[in-house]
Structures are given as C-alpha cells and as structure tokens.
C-alpha cells in the first residue's frame, strides 16, 4: 500500500484492457483501459467509458498484467521466419493465361 498525497492509504484499483466487438461478425478491437476493483465493475466501467453510443455490441476486459506482448526490439528476429517464404503468397505462383482470364 502506498501513502497517498493527502495522507490516506489507498490501493489503486487494478488496470484492465478493454476490447470491443464493433458489429456482429467483426473481430474484437482494443479500445483502451479502465481501472476497476473486480471483473464485474471493469465491464461496467468499460461500457460507460468506451461504449456510450453502441460502439461495441460485446466487450472483453482482461487484467492488463495478464497480457503477454512481443517486444519491439526483437521484432526483426522474432518475425523473420516469415520473411523468406514468398511461396506462402499466391503471387508466387504463375498460372496459365487461359485459366487466369476465367476469374
């Protein structure tokens, strides 16, 4: 517990990351974060903060300290297995002209 500037001892409510689904069938997107003492209030705070105009039809809240993220410094080595595999893309392949026209 940390001493607050006004002399009282207070815990800061934990931080939650908020994700919302903008529309039916759409993937969830990150909106921002909220502070809340528990999951239920985190959901309510997320609704009041990030969905006052139906921006989301569904919400997820995740304790921020539970998110595992890649680090930008490792971006090169971490993602480079994808760099030399051009054959994963359709452009890598040539198709006979006649077949191409049909689409």
């Amino acid at each position: 517990m940390k001493e607050s500037a006004n002399g009282t001892k207070q815990n800061e409510w934990p931080l939650w990351e908020v994700f919302y689904q903008p529309n039916n069938g759409k993937p969830f997107e990150h909106a921002g974060s909220v502070h809340a003492p528990d999951a239920e209030m985190a959901l309510q705070n997320a609704r009041d903060t990030y969905s006052r105009r139906n921006e989301g039809i569904n919400l997820w809240v995740v304790p921020s300290d539970q998110i595992v993220a890649s680090t930008p410094e490792d971006q090169g080595p971490f993602f480079d297995p994808a760099n030399d595999k051009a054959y994963r893309h359709p452009q890598f392949y040539s198709v006979p002209r006649a077949a191409k026209k049909r689409k």
């Binding site: 940390k2 931080l15 921002g32």
Partner: peptide
Amino acid sequence: QDEAGHGLYIYSAVETLGVTRR
C-alpha cells in the same frame, strides 16, 4: 458525461508511458 469519458481515454493513454493513474 462525454467529457468524463474524454478524460479517461487520455489518462488511459498517458498510463501507457509508465505513469500510474494515481
């Protein structure tokens, strides 16, 4: 109420820089 929301969006963005809300 929107203005309260604006404050919260930005506080949440500042916190990503390593300062706490408090």
